[in-house]
Design a protein around this nucleic acid. Structure first.
Lengths: 151, 151
DNA sequence: TATTGTTATACTCTATAACTATA
DNA sequence: TATAGTTATAGAGTATAACAATA
């Protein structure tokens, strides 16, 4: 152990604590940068996946987002109200609704993505491209632990 | 751009999205690992800082935790109810209350820290020590951007 | 005027449980 | 029996605005 690391308070050496604090910073800046009328992070994420996977069901979308189906109802409802996607019937299974982005939805998605990228580029300007890639890779590794948790 | 990075969905390349997903995984495992009666993450963090900085005021503690003073009332109240800290009057300024951990509070803090470390060691076992240190360093860098945000 | 602790309040995000209609 | 979408509800966690006491 070096002199430097020995003096770092224990709380600051926990991944969970740093993760939460960094998440709050990025999330706060997202909202400040995109403004009040913009898509909230989770709504933006959902729209992105609908654009990427046309005809996706709500259950599949919830699985991909890592949230419960019930939580998705309000998100999809907001996107439908904004005219950014449509719930389409699926022939052969009346239970399922295929989510399809409207042309305006695809435009809004691209537009939002550009603004999110700009916000991250500005906020994370202190990180090199390599550092940013490393960070994303490490976070992705943690995400993969989702299936092997305690309890 | 390599073939590999070109095929990664855009959402997956956003720091914010990966940060949130990883945060949910770690936070969920914390709760599963420490159990129902345990200190919630934010209560544990507050106690840790009170042990580390005896006589700290609520305002200073809120600043260190990056939350509002109003949000700290319930946290300190819970710690006091559990007998883990005391609010002490400060001679010279009747507005301020000095927070001091009780002996039991210090014990509970050490005990919780050991369990949190065990939970992180297990959950983050897929990361090498070096990767974990890198991750914390990168997250700490993002935390420092808290003061130079948009809006 | 400014600061400390506090209350009241609201908002966001998430989860659980139960329901319906289908399969 | 199981699945898709939905509703109702509750629980964290956070923020803002206002207040009394004190500086």
């Amino acid at each position: 152990m070096t002199d430097r690391s020995r003096n770092v308070p224990t709380l600051e050496r926990l991944v969970g604590y740093n993760l939460k604090r960094a998440y709050m910073v990025v999330q706060g800046d997202y909202r400040a940068a995109l403004g009040d009328g913009a898509l909230a992070p989770r709504v933006f994420s959902a729209l992105t996946l609908v654009v990427e996977f046309p005809q996706i069901s709500q259950s599949d979308l919830a699985r991909r987002l890592g949230i419960e189906r019930s939580g998705l109802v309000a998100i999809v409802g907001e996107l439908e109200e904004r005219g950014l996607l449509e719930r389409a019937d699926v022939p052969g299974d009346k239970r399922v609704q295929a989510l399809v982005a409207t042309p305006e939805g695809t435009r809004a998605c691209n537009d939002a993505m550009a603004r999110v990228q700009a916000h991250e580029d500005r906020l994370l300007g202190m990180l090199t491209e390599a550092e940013r890639a490393t960070l994303i890779a490490l976070l992705a590794k943690i995400r993969q632990a989702e299936d092997v948790q305690a309890g």
